[in-house]
Design a protein around this nucleic acid. Structure first.
Lengths: 133, 133
DNA sequence: ACACCAGTTTACGTGAACGTCAACCCCTTT
DNA sequence: AAAGGGGTTGACGTTCACGTAAACTGGTGT
């Protein structure tokens, strides 16, 4: 798969993909004599992971750390213990983010509730209420 | 409460607080003849909200939109209907983010599991296992 | 052979979110 | 009165995550 095909599929630009490679987040095939980049399912999976991370507010550096956790090749030389410990820390952070999101959603829902009721008062029974009767 | 007190409490710099004001996210007391800024509980609440939003990957512009939803004064002139509709859209987005985070956490947990098992194999029973016996 | 298209490198530009520094108050403490 | 200790306003600098443009290369159809 070519770079612009992949870009089109994931709604980003080739530049973005090359940038991620430059940052060490992707490692596509630099075919013999480095003419073109080729992307397999592995790279696409990584890329979607990067994009997910971005949507959730992680920096590329943070995402790289997580990706390296996923990557057996890269963690090869490292101490497994540390990797596992670091993974647990990351999982903890993710859990905290989930809780914060739930909190934020809760607050928004409260205000939403208030406004919805305000709307009921301001706009007393219209025809809409009688439509499906 | 002064600006640097507030900054210290929330682990940010005064500059950041002033910047948020410049962006329309905060509106502290500009005391008579504008000598100094004073922050009450309302502004502190807003600020924590901003920081929460930032941690979750929202831009300041997006956060401002949400804050304006919260703010009765600011939504005064607007059509309540639109405000409510927009609020529902935002709630939807939050829910999607929560789901994505859960997804990401799930993936990380899978890999974590694999690595933990690898570690069990590589490091067969040590003294640690006998310690609390 | 030539045009054309897609991909590549290089390099400078850009917007968001602040950091940093200078110069200037204002109040208080000595 | 002089010296500090915040606070305030510019204004320029900086980092991250790309955008954009230029110049080049490599295969492909005609």
């Amino acid at each position: 798969m070519s770079i612009s095909n992949l870009a089109q599929e994931l709604l980003i630009t080739p530049r973005t993909i090359r940038y991620y490679e430059e940052m060490g987040l992707l490692t596509p095939f630099h075919h013999e004599k480095m003419s073109q980049r080729l992307y397999g399912p592995r790279e696409r999976a990584r890329l979607t992971l990067v994009l997910r991370g971005k949507r959730l507010g992680f920096t590329l550096a943070e995402i790289k750390e997580m990706i390296d956790l996923y990557d057996i090749d890269r963690t090869e030389g490292l101490q497994l213990e540390r990797t596992v410990a670091y993974g647990e820390k990351k999982l903890q952070e993710l859990e905290e983010k989930i809780q914060e999101l739930i909190l934020l959603k809760g607050e928004l829902m409260d205000y939403h509730q208030q406004f919805t009721e305000l709307l009921k008062k301001d706009e007393p029974p219209t025809n809409d209420n009688l439509d499906n009767r």
